[in-house]
Write a protein that binds this DNA or RNA. Structure first.
Length: 850
RNA sequence: GCCGAAGUGGCGAAACUGGUAGACGCGCCAGGUUUAGGACCUGGUGGGGAAACCCAUGAGAGUUCGAAUCUCUCCUUCGGCACCA
């Protein structure tokens, strides 16, 4: 009686066995070569696991399982990135505490992930909202503070009107909130900032040493946005008063200085308010500035290039090259946060300046020769030969940049688009920032008697007078239990309302002080989680301290860097950049062994719902993995998601597609499960290999090669199809050699194991396997068996295929020609003519050109 | 506007450094097994044509004995950035 494939039964069974045997537990001390495979740990949303998670996790599970079979000590960990707004918003709506919601969601995710048979080392599970976890997040923040890389600043921030939260620049997409799509307005607020700009150059340079997909590298490079240029000072004059003032500008085109016909300042530029007295149209200027401040980013974007501005009448600047007096304007096309917040405008050679000059009737002076003279209605922004530039006329742009900058006493500098990371959030469900504000300590630092050198104050305290770090032994600063988490419109955290929590003693002077009530952004916990997986249980139980961290360095050294990290493209300028920054910092203070955390980074494509839209509840096109596991089995789901299309491209969910891989597994079952073990007598029959057997053997080795290579290149869709081809052929072939057949099928199972671990294990055990198939060695192919000795040659006439020939590999050209000329179709195509030329590619084709 | 990726059957897609276009799978068609059903088995399945053959990889040109693949122009879709001087 043949048995039937029943995934529901065997999948649960093996999941239990693997767990009991701790098959995927990773040793910290193994002598084997380590391999650290990482996926982006999920945010445990209330919607449960998404088929998109399954796609990414299965791919890395395949890599991890293959590496294990290849003899590596593989670490494939999992955890929860559980701080965040959706949980908090859900808690506000339902009244249940975020902690409870998180617990419920992670329980669901855990159950779902386990049902898919991923080879995670569950003993290392982490949760960013666990106080034992976030005490270390807070500790690392304090290291930034100590180093002077965390500072509080009153700046304009991006305020999401819907989430009621400040956003990092990276979180604003086209003037809208990256998360909710709500409108973002500019708001002035005191915020904690992390000085990521100090790492701009390192973050850029580090990209050279890592193996990231090119798109990820390019996106990071663009985001960091390095450009070389010069800062040049322009003297300022007033018509009425004598003033001694200069405006510094940044330009990448010092070669065009002779064409600078006005200066433009950003509305936030300090000089404007400072020279209020000298600006004769101050009222107009002031109202222009207030108008621009009111604009939201969306209005800015929507307006596009329609430029606005106001001249600062009464003051003028002197072009240091021409010594001419030029007007000074204020305009919001000049950004406060980039360069010096002021530019020299060269209308002839910059499109924006050109447009502005046209609108306000400012002079356009050409100083670079335009290659094609015909275009006069736009600026020529390219480089070239200088004209109208006094003694520099005739020089090339590249030389002139340096020469002119030097001539006017400018400084060569480098600018980055990257801004510091706004690190405060005014919500509840995040890590409290572990700092205390003490008025008394502030006064002490600011007093003239206070001698900085002799003090025990650390860098962060000097930089942020009055801000005192929590003592290490007092970490974590736990989130207090509150009844209402509702965010406020005033921009204060809900924590600010809990007086008993806010009022504390100053850790330094013991006086009355108050806590920081902002929390960290949801990127904090994920900025170092790849290290947390390596830390011992003790490290989480013990107090936070340099000493206890250093006990873990051995583990870091053993496993870092991550060998292969797969994740979504949407995290390339957020999480990926942030976590590289944290790791580089920790490396600089000698707390981790490598500067770069990830050796290799790849990216998966999204899985879209039917019709090609993003899967969402509101569209009603969400696919539930639980249902698919129940109906088709985890193995079929895993294989289908690998088969659905190229891994790095978006795929549209086809509800019927999964049937294909289910059928494949069913046929695998039928072919292998009822196989009889060969007796020793039967072995004797099979001394000679039948041609059938030879063909299968060859295909088998070709498949080993293909599957092995495809996994490494994440071309998993074609790996699956090659397994299907092999199965098709094995089914068709009639081999009368049971021993060979057995070894064939066993190799097939080992190839299948990473993809469909449960069925592979069950059939492996049924075929007499003693250990788990997942501990078996990965099959190796035999080169000599792969090459075919009978090949198919293509015969072309004038490049068109006319016939194919079967021939042995060593056949000569003469022989090929003889055979080709004998073919009816070739004779017909030649039409009695003699080929003028014959192109022969040995082993491939012959082409007769008439 | 700038940067990047991609356009191949009814559908998801294959095609290694230019060398048999459409592997593998879904769907569909025909037949079979079954009391019946199909998430079963066998065969077929780009278009035109009776056939010989011809036409087909977004459009158009080019290079080549030979182009889905290389070059140029254009069109479309998706992703990123968006006044960064």
């Amino acid at each position: 009686m043949p048995s039937k494939y029943n995934p529901q039964k065997i999948e649960k069974k093996w999941q239990k066995v693997w767990e009991q045997k701790k098959l995927y537990k990773t040793s910290n001390t193994s002598q084997k070569k380590k391999y650290y495979a990482l996926i982006e740990f999920p945010y445990p949303s209330g919607d449960g696991l998404h088929v998109g998670h399954v796609r990414s996790y299965t791919a890395m599970d395949i890599v991890a399982r293959k590496r294990r079979m290849q003899g590596h000590n593989v670490l494939y960990p999992i955890g929860w990135d559980a701080f965040g707004l959706p949980t908090e918003n859900y808690a506000i709506k339902t009244g249940s505490h975020p902690k409870i919601v998180t617990k419920r969601n992670t329980d669901t995710f855990r159950r779902q992930l386990k049902s898919l048979g991923f080879s995670f080392d569950w003993s290392r599970e982490i949760n960013t909202t666990d106080p034992d976890y976030y005490k270390w997040t807070q500790w690392i923040f304090l290291k930034f503070f100590e180093a002077g890389l965390a500072y509080k600043a009153r700046t304009f921030i991006n305020w999401c009107t819907k989430c009621k939260i400040g956003l990092a620049n990276e979180e604003v997409v086209a003037g809208r909130c990256e998360r909710c799509g709500g409108e973002v307005v500019r708001r002035e607020k005191e915020q904690w900032m992390l000085k990521i700009t100090a790492y701009a150059e390192k973050l850029l340079k580090g990209l050279q040493d890592v193996d990231y997909i090119p798109e990820a590298k390019i996106q990071q490079e663009n985001w960091i946005g390095r450009s070389e240029g010069a800062t040049i000072k322009f003297k300022v004059q007033s018509s009425k008063f004598k003033i001694n003032e200069e405006i510094e500008i940044f330009t990448t085109r010092a070669d065009t200085l002779f064409g600078a016909t006005y200066l433009a300042l950003s509305p936030e530029h300090k000089l404007i308010a400072k020279r209020k007295m000298q600006i004769v149209n101050w009222k107009e200027v002031e109202s222009y500035i207030t108008a621009t401040k009111k604009k939201t980013d969306i209005e800015h974007t929507a307006e596009g290039k329609e430029k606005t501005g106001m001249e600062l009448k009464g003051i003028k600047a002197i072009n240091p090259a021409t010594k001419e007096e030029i007007p000074i304007w204020v305009s919001d096309y000049v950004l406060a946060g980039y360069g010096t917040g002021a530019i020299m405008a060269v209308p002839a050679h910059d499109e924006r300046d050109f447009e502005f000059a046209k609108k306000f009737g400012l002079p356009v002076r050409e100083v670079i020769q335009q290659p094609n003279v015909s275009v006069l209605n736009t600026a020529y922004a390219g480089e070239g030969v200088l004209v109208n530039s006094s003694s520099f006329t005739g020089m090339q742009s590249i030389e002139a940049k340096k020469a002119i900058a030097e001539f006017v006493g400018g400084k060569i500098t480098i600018q980055y688009k990257l801004r510091d990371w706004i690190f405060s959030r005014q919500r509840y469900w995040g890590e409290p920032i572990p700092l205390i504000f003490c008025e008394r300590c502030k006064k002490l630092i600011k007093s003239s008697k206070f001698k900085v050198q002799s003090s025990k104050f650390i860098k962060g305290e000097l930089l942020n007078p009055g801000w005192i770090p929590i003592k290490e032994k007092d970490l974590p600063v736990e989130l207090p239990h509150v009844k209402s988490y509702t965010p406020t419109d005033t921009g204060e955290s809900p924590l600010a309302g809990i007086a008993s929590w806010v009022r504390v003693k100053c850790p330094r002077c013991g006086g009355a002080a108050r806590r920081e009530t902002d929390v960290m952004p949801n990127w904090a916990g994920s900025s170092w989680y790849f290290l947390a997986y390596l830390m011992s249980k003790k490290a989480f139980k013990n107090k936070t301290s340099i000493g206890n961290w250093k006990l873990e360095i051995g583990n870091f050294r053993h496993f870092m860097p991550v060998d292969w990290y797969n994740g979504g493209m949407e995290h390339t300028v957020l999480h990926l950049l942030y976590s590289r920054f944290w790791n580089q910092f920790l490396h600089d203070i000698k707390l981790v062994p490598t500067a770069e955390p990830y050796k290799k980074r790849t990216s998966h494509g999204l899985i879209l719902g039917e019709g090609g839209d993003k899967m969402s509840k509101s569209r009603g096109n969400v696919v539930n993995p639980d249902m698919l596991v129940r109906e088709f089995g985890a193995d079929a789901l895993r294989m289908y998601e690998m088969f659905i299309g190229p891994f790095n491209q978006a795929a549209v969910w086809d509800p019927r597609g999964i049937i294909g891989t289910r059928r494949f597994l069913e046929r695998t079952w039928n072919l292998i499960s009822n196989f009889q073990k060969p007796s020793s007598k039967q072995d004797l029959i099979s001394k000679n290999k039948s041609s059938n057997q030879k063909r299968i053997e060859q295909l088998l080795h070709q498949t080993i090669k293909k599957v092995s290579e495809d996994i490494e290149n994440l071309r998993i869709n074609t790996a699956v199809s090659s397994l299907m081809i092999l199965l098709n052929e094995m089914e068709k072939s009639e081999i009368r050699n049971p021993k060979f057949e057995m070894s064939c099928k066993k190799t097939f199972l080992r190839l299948l194991a990473p993809f469909a671990p449960h069925i592979a294990e069950e059939l492996w055990q049924k075929s007499g396997g003693k250990k788990s198939v997942h501990l078996e060695p990965w099959p190796k192919f035999d080169k000599t068996l792969i090459t075919e000795d009978i090949i198919t040659l293509v015969v072309q006439v004038n490049g068109k295929m006319r016939a194919t020939l079967k021939a042995s590999i060593g056949i000569s050209q003469k022989e090929v020609e003889r055979l080709a000329f004998a073919d009816v179709r070739v004779i017909k195509a030649l039409d009695g003519k003699h080929p003028a030329r014959v192109i022969y590619v040995p082993g491939k084709l012959i082409n007769f050109v008439l």
